[in-house]
Design a protein around this nucleic acid. Structure first.
Length: 427
RNA sequence: GGAGAGGUGUCCGAGUGGCUUAAGGAGCACGCUUGGAAAGCGUGUGUACGGUCAAACGUACCGAGGGUUCGAAUCCCUCCCUCUCCGCCA
């Protein structure tokens, strides 16, 4: 949520900045609702003040044994007047709030202009695209003979966009999780955390998935408003919802491994092959809660922490600065990490690292006590994947494939694979 | 699933219809006192919105949402959460 001050006093400038995200702000409607709100609020509060003082007078008169009937007559209509004003005020406020909750974050000045991913700005690359002396295959072809990656099997069990993994493939998947968690906790100073995979509506509203993106989520059939998490960002970030943290505990750095569930509505034709886009996948997520002045440095640090994983795995990648049109709803700036996939012959997103400034914090009322002012102030939140495990598995398989169909195990993972240096996918 | 007890400010805790403008205590901040500290004494101490150059001031907030009333922390209804005992259970 944007600072309402921006809407009240810098409406035109804010609307202009939102255009770079492709969002058209309804300036006229907001102005009209704002002036209605202001009038109604003043009138309502005046009526309340009258009621309060009159009621007090009645109480005093009664305790002195005076006749209170004239006083009661005087306030006879007050209740109805107040009710109707209150109702009008609430209607305007909820309409205004609805609009406000649907306004995306304002892009930072360093975000490139543009409409689609073609306009994203390459910031840096690491390594060169892997070259082979034979025709490189994709992970689907690599595993089809052995059936160790079971797309049809999972489709039988559940439906499309699910997968089963077997044997050393399942082990490699688990090894990646353990490896990532260990690097972030031991080398990067994150605290490992375990969270619920089912969250309520308030949590999803806090991080910005709701109310606008309900169709991307799996909702439970339950009278409680329960949803499967689309990312660990939701439960982890919401740990600080409605909290006022002591300055001394900032920054907070959390790493969390969790499954992620996404309905992928609206992406029916895309990435139907392989395990690039699944309804269920594992992810290791990094989340930071920081003082406002530290969030930009935190974003750089967090992105580097994610890159470290790719580097240790020896996977070629590039970093792109997302353009305005490609930026997510809550983000002020996002770096995507894109790993080289030989099977597709291109870079594919494997991590997304964003600074949300106080956008999520305002929705969550997540604050810290600033020692300089003594007041509770909104904190900043930063997060990113490090990394998406399923896509990392694909990247390892495709980049480390050998002509005989086997896959070399990157050095960093060997300890997690019982010392194995090569696994076979043929049988 | 059954029975019971609760939810009040940063924390503890009083408050069962009207000087509650939420008592009292702790903590915290500042001041006095002191050689210095502790103790003691005094003063202050929430959030949001409106208002204002700034203030004064006004409004709302006692788990959430409704209701009764001139007036609700207090009475009524619904829901959520916590704790204790019993049952069941990975």
């Amino acid at each position: 949520m944007l600072d309402p001050i921006l809407i009240r006093h810098e409406l035109a400038a804010t609307a202009a900045r939102l255009l770079t995200k492709g969002f058209e702000l309804d300036v006229v409607q907001i102005q009209s609702l704002e002036s209605q709100r202001k009038d109604l609020q003043v009138e309502t509060e005046e009526l309340q003040a009258t009621r309060n003082s009159q009621s007090k007078a009645i109480g005093q008169a009664k305790s002195k044994g005076e006749d209170i009937q004239p006083l009661l007559d005087a306030v006879a209509n007050l209740g109805d007047q107040l009710d109707s004003k209150k109702q009008a005020l609430e209607a305007v406020q909820s309409r205004l709030n609805e609009l406000l909750m649907a306004i995306p974050n304002v892009p930072d000045d360093t975000v490139p202009a543009g409409k689609s991913e073609d306009d994203n700005l390459e910031v840096r690359t690491w390594g060169d695209p892997t070259e082979f002396t034979f025709a490189a295959r994709d992970h689907v072809d690599m595993t089809s003979a052995s059936g160790k990656m079971g797309f049809e099997e999972a489709t039988k069990i559940t439906g499309s966009r699910f997968v089963t993994l077997r044997g050393q493939l399942a082990q490699l998947h688990r090894a990646l999780v353990q490896f990532m968690l260990n690097v972030h906790t031991v080398e990067h100073g994150y605290e490992e955390i375990y969270v619920p995979y089912i969250v309520n509506r308030e949590s999803l509203t806090g991080t910005g998935q709701l109310p606008k993106f309900e169709e991307d989520l799996f909702k439970l059939d339950d009278e409680r408003d329960f949803y499967l998490i689309p990312t660990a960002e939701v439960p982890v970030t919401n740990m600080v919802r409605d909290e006022i943290l002591d300055a001394a505990v900032l920054p907070q750095k959390f790493v969390c491994h969790s499954p992620c569930f996404r309905s992928e509505a609206g992406s029916y034709g895309r990435d139907t092959r392989g395990m690039i886009r699944q309804h269920q996948f594992e992810k290791v997520e990094l989340v930071m809660m920081v003082r406002p002045e530290d969030s930009w440095a935190a974003l750089e640090e967090l992105a580097l922490n994610a890159e470290t994983i790719l580097q240790k795995l020896g996977l070629p990648y590039r970093v792109v600065n997302l353009c305005g049109g490609d930026l997510g709803f809550a983000a002020a700036k996002t770096y995507d990490l894109e790993v080289w996939l030989p099977g597709q012959g291109k870079y594919r997103e494997i991590s997304s690292c964003s600074n949300f400034l106080d956008f999520q914090a305002r929705r969550m009322q997540a604050r810290w006590r600033n020692p300089e002012t003594g007041k509770p102030e909104l904190m900043h939140t930063v997060n990113g994947s490090a990394l998406a495990v399923g896509r990392t598995l694909v990247a390892v398989l495709e980049n480390y494939q050998q002509e005989d169909g086997s896959v070399r195990i990157p050095k960093a993972l060997q300890a997690y694979m019982g010392g194995e240096t090569v696994i076979s996918l043929e049988q």
